[in-house]
């Protein structure tokens, strides 16, 4: 066999080895649905959910739940989820540990101001106050001084 032919034989062998390695290293679930590993879908589907929803909280915190869902006109928070303010509760009901943000909100006024601080970009329908300037709404006082029940906050006009 001539030298030139041998060179191309070497090339051919390289191609075959590549093909073999390629087919042997292919993940099993690749190509079941498309060019990706179907095994990953199973993994995605079985990920743990951490936000538990307020119906779960109700089991222990019935009073707070009833306040929150109350149909009284003063209860403006009736559409809120507990975890929107208190942090996600995945580990909490199971193991009795504190919620990720702390079941007890560390700075209530700050939490209120996330939604109720006066911002020009907020829709007008949202009740808003400012703690600074001439229009300040009782600056220096905690919100809970007057709005005692934050789950069912009284809305003074």
């Amino acid at each position: 066999m001539s030298w030139t032919a041998r060179v191309f034989l070497v090339v051919l062998i390289i191609f075959i080895v590549y093909g073999a390695v390629k087919s042997l290293t292919k993940p099993k679930s690749l190509g079941v649905f498309g060019h990706y590993r179907a095994a990953n879908i199973s993994k995605q589907l079985s990920k743990e959910t951490k936000f538990v929803g307020r119906e779960t909280c109700k089991a222990c915190h019935e009073q707070e739940y009833n306040d929150l869902c109350s149909e009284e006109p003063s209860s403006a928070h009736r559409n809120l989820q507990c975890e929107a303010c208190h942090g996600l509760g995945v580990a909490h009901p199971k193991e009795g540990v504190a919620l990720s943000c702390g079941c007890k909100i560390p700075d209530v006024t700050k939490q209120c101001m996330y939604c109720h601080e006066m911002l020009p970009s907020r829709p007008k329908s949202m009740p808003q106050i400012t703690l600074k300037g001439p229009e300040a709404h009782f600056p220096g006082m905690a919100c809970t001084t007057c709005h005692t029940n934050t789950h069912k906050p009284a809305f003074y006009k």
Binding site: S2, W3, T4, V7
Partner: peptide, 19 residues
């Protein structure tokens, strides 16, 4: 790298140059 061939005859080199 030789691949077992020492062929550098004129004919062989002609092929090599062509390739």
């Amino acid at each position: 790298l030789l691949l077992g061939s020492h062929d550098v005859s004129e004919k062989a080199m002609k092929t090599v140059h062509k390739v």
